[in-house]
Nucleic acid binder design. Structure first.
Length: 337
RNA sequence: AGCAUGCUAG
């Protein structure tokens, strides 16, 4: 994020020394801004590029599609796809997965799926990533049958599913509370010779937590470590939150202690889940301790953590304490959403 | 490869 300014300096330096900027260079800048969520500047760089008389290549077009899709501008994205074709570039798998994801994020999954079929029919190469984007969209809609159908489709068309394909589906089963389905899918991934990474384990942990099977979740954590996969912050947060939702403040606190000792270091989400756990257990004393521990370890509270504290107090029938938490939040310049 | 797809809190 903070490095984009430096990147721009380097590019200005290049220009000053008479280096011609090419599509490659502009592409790096555009995707850099895109990743910071700075669409206006990403598009600004694209404009500079055109003014400099540099032609967009396929990767630059794909970056533009990403920027447009991330800012809800799918009509412009489709117009850009047309421009891309007119410039003589066939859509690539990056193009397609980017557009499908754009449609998914903008609540137009079916349009994305239609586009995928159209481009497939015209011979656009389709990779696992394209299917993954589509499966993710279906998973978000709870359409597991169709998502699983796409996995079959991959097999039939000779596209090998990758780890993300399976992780996406495991997450889908997790969301639908289907622990059996999640495990079966996870094992299918392993049977296919794909090694689970932290995200794959994370999705499986989510399935356990969602199903309320916390002992199973702990066992999965141990399997993950035995397999040499370092528990990610993501995965640990899933577990802490799983205990929190069960109202088991003690187990949640235990995990957080372990994280403080052996890592990964707890972050604001970890502590927020712990605060919720304490609140649900009716122990506001511990909730406040958790909140203070967070601050003492240099983790800045955000709106979510204050809200968790506030709700705990409200739930415990201490409106004046809730109000105090609210005022403290405002004093820190945070606005409730 | 300068570009795309998966798991976490109120």
């Amino acid at each position: 994020a903070g490095r984009m300014g430096r990147a721009l300096e380097v590019v200005r330096d290049m220009e000053a020394h008479g280096c011609a900027l090419n599509a490659h260079t502009f592409g790096m800048l555009i995707s850099g801004f895109a990743r910071c969520g700075d669409a206006p500047r990403a598009l600004g760089v694209a404009e500079d590029m055109r003014r400099a008389g540099v032609r967009e290549d396929a990767a630059v077009f794909n970056c533009l599609l990403h920027v447009l899709g991330s800012s809800g501008r799918m009509e412009e994205a489709m117009a850009t796809l047309q421009r891309m074709r007119l410039a003589g570039h066939r859509p690539t798998p990056h193009t397609l997965s980017t557009l499908v994801t754009g449609f998914v994020r903008n609540g137009a999954l079916e349009q994305g799926l239609r586009l995928m079929e159209e481009l497939r029919a015209e011979g656009c190469p389709v990779t696992a990533a394209v299917f993954n984007a589509a499966m993710h969209g279906l998973v978000l809609q709870g359409q597991m049958e169709r998502a699983a159908g796409l996995l079959e489709d991959m097999a039939q068309t000779g596209v090998a599913p990758d780890r993300r394909s399976f992780t996406t589906l495991v997450d889908g089963y997790a969301r639908s509370g289907d622990l059996e389905g999640a495990f079966e899918c996870f094992r299918r991934m392993q049977a296919g010779g794909l090694e689970a990474d932290a995200a794959a384990y994370g999705a499986l942990l989510k399935a356990c937590c969602k199903a309320g099977r916390m002992q199973t979740a702990q066992a999965v954590l141990e399997q993950m470590q035995a397999a040499g996969v370092a528990p990610s912050l993501h995965a640990m947060n899933t577990l802490v939150d799983g205990w929190a939702r069960r109202g088991d403040m003690w187990e949640a606190a235990q995990l957080v202690q372990r994280m403080r000792g052996a890592g990964p270091a707890p972050d604001v989400r970890t502590y927020t889940s712990l605060i919720i756990a304490c609140g649900r257990a009716g122990d506001m004393q511990r909730a406040v301790e958790a909140f203070e521990e967070m601050q003492q370890s240099g983790v800045a509270p955000n709106v979510q953590s204050y809200t968790a504290l506030l709700q705990g107090w409200a739930w415990a029938s201490y409106p004046e304490k809730a109000l105090q938490a609210y005022q403290e939040m405002r004093a820190h310049g945070l606005q409730p959403d």
